[in-house]
Each structure stands twice: as structure tokens, then as C-alpha cells.
Design a protein around this nucleic acid. Structure first.
Lengths: 230, 230
DNA sequence: TAGATTGTTAATCGATTAACAATC
DNA sequence: TAGATTGTTAATCGATTAACAATC
């Protein structure tokens, strides 16, 4: 490959489609680094940090930290490490936390209410600007600064505001129907906290948050640990 | 390998340690199959179901369904498929949902309250039998059938009841301290809903539930989909 | 019987981990 | 300078997917 080809490849990578896929495990670890780095910054112990340091503190192999940071396009200095401030800002940019995305939440039960109270979401570029329910007790109220509307208004409001992200915090039974309704209105990505898998057209993104799955992993690890120690 | 060796190997696998590790992705999919199978059973469309059918409905490759069910030690009939009832019962047994595990919950905020209300956990063998907080408003109250105690009673109650699972639903700041306290008292597995990674001794299990990580995956997929379609 | 489906072994794919030259 | 650390290429590992004989 000659110099011309190299520079062409760079241009393609940065400006053109398709963007190369980022490994999901890396994507999931970046927020961990971010939270850790902000803590470290507040301790004022220096301006630079090494992968060895990060890895030790987070129980992740240093080489993996280096790979992840490389994918996020961070650049370090041999012997010194990475600038903490720069790293924080690079992760923010890479994950798109600078430009906020608006979202609607459907289902103001216990979990929905809890999510409405997560101030932290704003830090991660997510802004829940309205909630929907069918319970007359809740409609019209403002919960954690977010107004609750009747579900019947969902379609028009999604259309009018051009909302792309929907958060689904409802029981199993109405989950599919409400998903269909959101998709019809123009929602492109659904964060699904309901206990069932919902079906969507191929161009719609669904992120299924399944507490049962997580609990199973925890419980099985506990059982295996007991067996192997006995 | 002769017949003797084969039978010896079987005996070891079934009765002796160490139990062979189960792939975590499989473990996470099993509850999905379970929820789906219960729905199918209630529709009374027949007694048997094939991997093709399950896979189509859940958007999972049939061969992967077959692998997963095999790992859970399910046995099917060529041409017919698997008995739905048998499959449900095999998953319940394999995941240990028959014998309930008691747990304590620490931090009765919005999320903690929501988790206390999840009746579904009982189905998955998890029984939250007490909650702890430092807020005098909450102490002494019963939320969703679970009594809230002062945090100071955690240590003695864990010891006395032999509780092994702790659910941590607190903000970042007290998370590590409360983890240490739980471990000292005898907790062996922590389901961590706090926004920070907590450090534990090597024999303690931590399952970190990180909403920021999930949100990042959702948002990045949405961004990539837009770029590739433009 | 014929054909769909299981169970198992092999091939592929992608993420993790190792190796090592470049460098502040 | 010497040594720790980065960035990159190669090796390993484990999960997914494919292939195919056995079978109700």
C-alpha cells in the first residue's frame, strides 16, 4: 500500500459510510472508564494516567483498556500515559454525549418513575421530555420535572417533535401493542424494560433490558462458586 | 476412549466438581425461551415445538436455540421437536428456580422501591425478605410487602438469617462502603445497581447492572443506522 | 416411506490476550 | 540513559454458525 492509498483510506474512514462497527463489549466498557476517570480527576493526583493504572483499579487487563481507548481514538504518550482531561473529553465526544437526544417514556409505573428521576441520564446525552400513561391519577402530573400525558397523545407528539427514542416501561401484556404504536409514530429506537421481547421492523433498533437474564447469571455464578468450593 | 472411560466421565460430569462452565450468552437467552414457551403453552396450539419455530419467533438462529437447549440438558425428538411442558420444567430446574433464594435490598430510593415491587422475581427464585435504608421516613414502613429496617441492623440480620444475596440500589457515594459492610456480614453475591464499579474480595460475586452502558449501545446503534442510511 | 428435525462434530468469526518494536 | 508505556500486529480462545448423519 503506498502513501496515496493510506491517505485515501483515512478519508473514507472519517467522512464516508459505512462507519466501521465498534465492538459492543468496548462500547459497554467506555462508560466505566469515564466514571472512573472523572473520579480520578477529582482526586487531583496528576494530569496523566496509564492503562496499567486504569486496569488495576477496574479489574480489567491493561491491554484491553489500551485497545478500547484506541478504538475511541484516544492517543497516549509512551511512558507518560493518557491525559486524563483529554480522555474524558474524547469519550464524551466518541459516545455523542455532547449533543443531547430527546426521548419519550411510556408507562409511569414504579420503574418508569425511577427512570424519570435519573438525573444522570442527562450526563449521557439523554433527555426525557415527556411521559405517557393511561392512569388518570397520573395524567397531567409532573414527575421529577417531566409531565405525564395521556397515551392517546403519543402519536401526534412523536410526529410533531420528531422524537426518535422511546423508553418502554410497561408490563408484558401491552408491550407489543405500544411498540407498534411508537414505531408507527416515527420512533426509531426503543429501550425496552418490559419483560418480553418485542418485534419490530428490521430498521428499528431495540435494546432489551432483561433483569431476569442478569439475575440468572448472578444466581448461576453463586451456585457454581459454592459447588467448586465444597 | 473405551466404554469404561466414557461412563467414568459421565459420573464425574454429573456428580463431581468442577461443574463445566455454562456460556454466559446461553444463560442470558434461557429466560427468553422460558417466557416465550410459557406464552406458547397458554395458546394451546400443540404439545411440541421445534427450534425453527422458536428461532423464528425470537429472531434467533434455530441452530443456536438447539445448542442452548442442549446445554440446558433438554432432549428433543427428531421430526417432532421438544415437549413444551418438559422444556419449561427443564429450564426451571436448570436455572434453579425451584429452590428460592432469599435476598436483602439496600437503598430504598425510586429504583429500590421499583425492584421491591417486582413480583416476577419470585418466579425466578429470588425472594427479597427485607430492605435497609438510613432515611427515618422509610424505616419501619412496609413497601410492597417488604419491611424497611435501619441500615445499622444489616450486619446482624445477614448473619442471623444467613443471607447470601444483596441488592445494592444506592447512589455512587456510599456504594463501596455498603458493599464492604455487606461482605463483612457474610453476603456472597451482590447485584449492583449503583452507578459505580465496586471492589470485592475474589470469592465474592458481583453483577453490575449498568444502565449507562446499555444506553450507550442503543444510542450508538441509532447513530450508525442513520449514517449508513443517509 | 419421505422429510423435517435433532444431536454432534467441524468451520468460521470476533473478541481477548500476547508479543514486541517504537518512543517519551 | 534506562525503563515504563504506547500502538500495532499476531496468537489464542470461546461463541456462533455450518454441515451432516441419525431418527421418529
Amino acid at each position: 500500500m503506498n502513501e496515496m492509498e493510506v491517505s485515501m483510506a483515512n478519508v473514507e474512514d472519517r467522512n464516508d459510510l459505512p462507519t466501521k462497527p465498534i465492538p459492543e463489549p468496548t462500547l459497554r466498557r467506555l462508560p466505566l472508564y469515564y466514571q472512573y476517570l472523572k473520579k480520578v480527576r477529582d482526586e487531583h493526583k496528576g494530569d496523566f494516567i496509564s492503562c496499567t493504572q486504569i486496569g488495576n483499579d477496574l479489574s480489567i487487563l491493561p491491554i484491553q483498556v489500551r485497545k478500547d481507548l484506541g478504538i475511541a481514538e484516544a492517543v497516549g504518550k509512551p511512558k507518560l500515559g493518557y491525559s486524563i482531561d483529554e480522555l474524558i473529553s474524547i469519550i464524551e465526544t466518541f459516545l455523542g454525549w455532547n449533543n443531547t437526544k430527546d426521548a419519550y417514556l411510556v408507562g409511569v409505573g414504579h420503574l418508569g418513575t425511577a427512570l424519570l428521576g435519573f438525573e444522570r441520564f442527562k450526563e449521557y446525552g439523554l433527555n426525557i421530555i415527556a411521559a405517557f400513561d393511561i392512569d388518570k391519577e397520573k395524567i397531567g402530573k409532573t414527575i421529577h420535572g417531566v409531565k405525564v400525558f395521556h397515551l392517546g397523545k403519543l402519536h401526534d407528539m412523536v410526529k410533531r417533535m420528531g422524537i426518535k427514542i422511546g423508553i418502554l416501561t410497561v408490563p408484558a401484556s401491552p408491550a407489543q401493542e405500544l411498540t407498534d404504536e411508537m414505531v408507527r409514530a416515527g420512533i426509531r429506537a426503543i429501550w425496552n424494560f418490559s419483560p418480553v421481547k418485542v418485534n419490530v421492523p428490521p430498521d428499528i433498533i431495540v435494546q432489551h433490558e432483561n433483569l431476569a437474564s442478569s439475575l440468572v447469571v448472578l444466581a448461576k455464578k453463586l451456585t457454581l462458586a459454592r459447588q467448586n468450593q465444597s
